[in-house]
Simulated scan of single mutants.
Amino acid sequence: MAGLRLNLSVLWWLPRGLIFGLMAFFIFGPLFNMALWTVTEKWYFPHALPLEYGFSAWARVFAPRGGALQSLGNSLTVAVLTVIVSLAFAIPAGYALARLKLPLRSLILLAFLIPQAFPNLTVYVNVARLFYEIHLNGTIAGVVLVHVSHGLVYAVWIATAAFSAIDVELEQAARSLGAGAMRTFRDITLPLAAPGLMASAIFVFLESLDEFTGSYFVGAPDVNMLPLLLYTAGSGGNYQVASITALLLLVPSLIFMLIVERFLKADVLSRVGR
């Protein structure tokens, strides 16, 4: 009997181990390949591993003519401005959607999904033409406006959920003790909603940092961004530069997602879309 139970246990864990192994391969395999390319000097078919290792590609990327530092600076500037503008709209909008009994509340929330509902390519071609006429094409301001149109989806929906998760009785208690509406919002509501708003800001930041299509049609070639540098290097077969640029985009994404996991609680997530 003991041998039979052992065999059944092996038969039970074998397919599960195989499935998890395949998942790990498809998830971490490309990341491992990317990491290898960042330190590769010579690698060609049919060799499974690089023939020479080194860091000369890093020197080329961060050289004054490499464009990585300028692209990184532009990407961070646009991402920070996108977060500021998005939250400036999302905080009052999220509070109103969470507290006021609006008759078209669901339609208003769905309206923020419209930028995601259409193919980006056709939208940004027309946006670029419009921005060219009003002299916003090829400017930081134009790129920020495009990124905000996508960032508002995360900002408004998560802000609405964060404010909805706050007990109204806490605000009513503050008002009954003599606090005005603005003071109640500043001292009670906003601090309690801060973790959700922080998570919203991180989502907007990461969305802006990775945005390619809008940055290409509205910003290029005057506003260089990291996704544009990644695309140029990859399409030109320069896999070392492309992998290093991808790593620069990956590291903040991993760090911020860990922060989001800490701040975005289950009670907030349960109210998204309500």
Rank of each mutant, 00 (worst) to 15 (best):
S9Q: 14
V10C: 05
W12H: 08
G17M: 09
A24C: 12
A24H: 07
F25M: 10
F26S: 05
F32I: 14
N33Q: 10
A35G: 14
E41I: 09
K42C: 02
W43N: 02
Y44A: 13
H47I: 04
W58P: 04
V61C: 14
F62W: 15
G66P: 02
N74F: 05
L76Y: 03
A79Y: 02
V80E: 04
L81G: 01
S86R: 01
S86C: 14
A88G: 12
F112A: 04
Q116D: 04
Q116C: 04
Q116P: 00
Y124M: 15
V125L: 15
N126S: 14
R129P: 00
R129H: 11
H135G: 02
V146H: 01
V146A: 11
S149D: 05
Y154F: 15
V156H: 01
W157M: 11
A159Y: 01
A162S: 15
A162Y: 01
A165I: 02
D167A: 15
V168M: 11
F185N: 05
I188V: 15
T189K: 05
A193M: 07
S200T: 07
V204D: 00
V204L: 07
P221H: 03
P227K: 03
T232N: 10
G234S: 12
Y239D: 02
S243E: 08
I244K: 02
L247F: 13
M257S: 11
M257E: 03
I259Q: 07
V260M: 06
E261Y: 06
R262Y: 07
R262G: 05
L264K: 00
L269E: 13
R271Q: 12
V272I: 14
